[in-house]
């Protein structure tokens, strides 16, 4: 019952009433707009029983969508880690003209809506696009195929790793790395033995956020994938397809797998946040 540390605890009674009303409103609003929509996903997915749920998950098209989404994440997340580290090292450890501009460009995908990213890619690689005719002549298929899906996913996930790792590297400074250098360590040794242990939790955090985004991206992928059933349909697109087919329980079953991933991400995030705080 002790609440002495909060302002208002020693305040007059009308303050307390206001406090209870505000807390009540916060719970009510959050229940209505966040908690119920979240719980409803599992409730509907399981509304026809566990057997029906399992059948919906192993339906060939849904299974293929799960596989495709996993492939996209397995390609994009490692690329994100390598490039994110490279950009963070470049921006944190060196000064050069255009450094701020480079960071702004890396963070640009956060401000551009995914659907516009999709349109950009279509205008670049499409049949009437900038590079379309050249690639078409060379028989290279980017759009409506895996490369296009991977490329737009790379676009929307580009800022995550750099944004988590860079502030930490800047705050830590480069004294330890310079010491290692004077002791004769090579660049990769410095990175592996000095830098990486200092930033591993921030790196993991960035990678987790990038994974969540890669798995759940809808808008950008829907423009470039062509949504070919059982071929270029990722899991979020499969949800829309099942919904349009009026297979609502199937759509919710597919959605529940993505929701589970989202919840795991949140748990990992909570665990890591404590550790990133300690690194700083």
């Amino acid at each position: 019952m002790r609440a002495a540390s909060t302002p208002g605890a020693l305040a007059p009674r009308e303050d307390r009433t206001a406090q209870y009303v505000l807390i009540g409103l916060a719970f009510l609003g959050t229940a209505f707009i966040v908690a119920v929509p979240l719980a409803y996903i599992f409730w509907r997915a399981l509304s026809d029983g566990v057997a029906a749920f399992a059948a919906n998950i192993i339906a060939p098209d849904t299974l293929h969508a799960i596989w495709l989404t996993s492939v996209v994440a397995l390609i994009t997340v490692p690329v994100n880690i390598v490039i994110g580290l490279s950009a963070a090292w470049l921006i944190a450890r060196f000064t050069f003209p255009g450094r701020k501009l480079l960071l702004t460009i890396i963070e640009l995908p956060f401000s551009i809506s995914p659907i516009i990213a999709g349109v950009c890619y279509l205008l670049l690689y499409g049949r009437q696009g900038l590079l379309g005719p050249t690639l078409g002549a060379a028989d290279i298929q980017i759009l409506f195929a895996l490369p296009g899906i991977v490329l737009v996913t790379l676009f929307v996930t580009a800022p995550f790793v750099t944004r988590e790792v860079l502030p930490l590297m800047q705050a830590q400074g480069s004294e330890q790395e310079q010491a290692a250098l004077t002791l004769g360590a090579t660049g990769f040794q410095i990175f592996r033995l000095v830098t990486l242990p200092n930033i591993r939790w921030a790196l993991l955090y960035g990678a987790v956020l990038a994974t969540a985004r890669a798995v759940g991206e809808f808008g950008a992928v829907s423009v470039v994938s062509g949504s070919i059933r059982g071929q270029t349909n990722t899991l979020p697109l499969q949800i829309e397809l099942l919904f349009n087919d009026l297979n609502i329980v199937g759509a919710f079953a597919a959605a529940s797998t993505l929701t589970l991933i989202a919840l795991i991400v949140l748990i990992v995030k909570t665990v890591i946040e404590g550790r990133v705080g300690r690194e700083e």
């Binding site: 759940g216 809808f218 919904f243 759509a251 919710f252 995030k269």
Partner: peptide
């Protein structure tokens, strides 16, 4: 828990949110 709930809309894929809200 209330605090953690604030991160759900970021973590949840938008298509999943759209589906659930539409059905509700």
């Amino acid at each position: 828990i209330l605090d953690a709930m604030m991160d759900i809309p970021f973590a949840l894929p938008t298509a999943v949110a759209g589906l659930s809200l539409t059905a509700l």
